[in-house]
Design a protein around this nucleic acid. Structure first.
Lengths: 322, 322
DNA sequence: TTGTACGCGTTATCAC
DNA sequence: GTGATAACGCGTACAA
């Protein structure tokens, strides 16, 4: 006999009344509540979540899809998990490592009702394929998914990139190299476009030969710096895909005795903790705020309650590398 | 009507046979299997996890308790999650941020059968209080819990510390400062003891006045370096609580134009990716391997199957800071 | 305010 | 190999 039944038996009350006390329904007499509550404590009772979930159809769990957990996505995820917890939700992280099958399991878990909703941080499956899962529960993405099939909380990075460009302009740098992330990502497209239209507007040459792609980590940054140093001409400044890349570039530049920022200015992106420590000029990306908005969007469906959203902006953080 | 019932109806087979096909039981005729499988595909059927969990009493979910997610614990957790996934387990992370109530919720979720087992990365509640939860499912810890009430996969860090000390000895450094983590942690105790007995064995002075505690992050490291620099006498070498602290110390030392390692040698601990990039001498800590062993210990109970464990060792990684 | 009766979707134990 | 039937632990219309 389950503890629930034991409570019924000992208290003499029905299943419904016991359930009401458990769920803090107001429609219970003080006496009943008192008696049942006491027995619950005696028995050290705690509801079985699976039974509750089966009955209600809700698990109060949200899945987080990500291909890999780097510090950046971690910032986003941490904030999300905290917000979710404030609303009574636990989170399950699906780290696909770029494996489509594994990633898909997260989506299947939405179908199988293991989770009530999904947050996509980064994903590798085709959005068109993923779209069909939206009928099983709310899905929101950080990464922009294209075509707005799946809603995204990402900001257009062109805006942030322009801040960096204007800053470099004010410093008098015109020969600017770009180090990007994924070639085909929407963010890269935005940034590249921002760079090119900015340069054209100033009448400066667009340095497309110097574009580098797939630079994510500090190691990637080191390698990128090697290519830059071995190129025909050193740029005056480098715009980096993110702060990690900037760290690698800075580190490798120092090894080669290239003075920063005298010979080479460096601008990161995102404004992680380490870039403060290492004194890297960067663009502050309001990641935590985007994360909160991501949960709010899910909550709009799960809690059937709209929450206000505020407009977010990038910000230039001036430090020692420019 | 549920899809399960729909399958029963359309196929003409009973609930039991349908269940057998779903679970790949061998005791089904090829014909039945064929028919039922086809209908399942037609209906795009997927089992409801809550129903399965309620019936079996297992969720195939494991909780991970941690007070905060830094890069180090992330390494451990990532490896654990991957191993768990290989065994068909999902993980739920409980980030307590040092809040005992929140942390306790993870343990309560073991009671309520939301998770089948628990991994403790770091925890703030009293182990004596936590011990009682072991009756609800297997628990294993990374952090040493004292008294071995809850099993731990941690290694004695004294061994690693000695490697660092011997290395410093070979370099001729005898005036050695120590920067520790939590004052009362078993790791700190081990390290302090390793240092003191090593110094005594060599007949060198134990520099206890220079002990610093609660140094975890790079920021903490920066501050620690400030205190060191402003102290009466600069040490020849610093042993750090971890690589992050080492980064902060290195960074701050450079700002103060203290030559590393000529004026000050630095040894980190753990061997994270960044310490390779930044050229920090450190002690390699086989974290991923410990993580795998942690899951294996849980699996010994959950899968009722013992897995072999191998002895793990620390290793000195010599780089530019010594 | 309380109780009855049923539903949630699946597994498990028996028989046959 | 197959099929009733119970069990898992709880929520919830609906009626009283």
């Amino acid at each position: 006999m389950s503890k629930f039944d034991e409570i019924m038996k000992r208290s003499g009350y029905s299943r419904a009344t016991v359930s009401r006390v458990i769920n803090h329904s107001p429609h219970v007499s003080d006496e009943a509540r008192h008696i049942i509550t006491n027995i619950m404590k005696e028995l050290n009772y705690i509801p079985n979540r699976n039974a509750v979930s089966l009955s209600t159809g809700k698990t109060k769990q949200i899945g987080i899809i990500t291909s890999t957990i780097d510090d950046l996505s971690l910032t986003f995820m941490n904030q999300f998990m905290e917000t979710a917890m404030d609303f009574g939700f636990q989170t399950i992280v699906y780290t696909s490592r770029g494996n489509k099958e594994i990633e898909l399991q997260g989506f299947e878990d939405l179908r199988s009702k293991r989770v009530d909703g999904l947050l996509i941080v980064t994903c590798v499956n085709d959005p068109r394929k993923l779209k069909m899962y939206m009928e099983y529960g709310p899905i929101v993405s950080w990464q922009r998914m294209g075509n707005d099939e799946i809603p995204s909380v990402a900001m257009d990075q062109a805006e942030g990139y322009r801040l960096a460009l204007e800053h470099l302009e004010s410093r008098g740098y015109t020969r600017i190299a770009n180090v990007f992330g994924r070639v085909e990502s929407l963010n890269t497209q935005s940034r590249r476009q921002a760079y090119e239209s900015f340069m054209k507007s100033r009448g400066w040459p667009v340095w497309a030969e110097a574009y580098q792609y797939s630079v994510f980590s500090s190691s990637d940054g080191e390698e990128a710096m090697r290519r830059i140093a071995e190129g025909p001409e050193l740029p005056q400044a480098v715009l980096c895909s993110n702060d990690y890349a900037a760290i690698g570039i800075l580190s490798e530049a120092r090894k080669r005795n290239i003075l920063v920022p005298e010979q080479l200015a460096i601008v990161g992106f995102d404004d992680i903790e380490l870039s403060r420590i290492l004194g890297i000029t960067t663009i502050h990306n309001p990641i935590a705020e985007q994360s909160t908005q991501a949960f709010h969007q899910l909550w709009a469906v799960l809690g059937q309650q709209e929450l206000q959203t505020k407009q977010l902006t990038y910000q230039l953080i001036e430090r020692a590398t420019t």
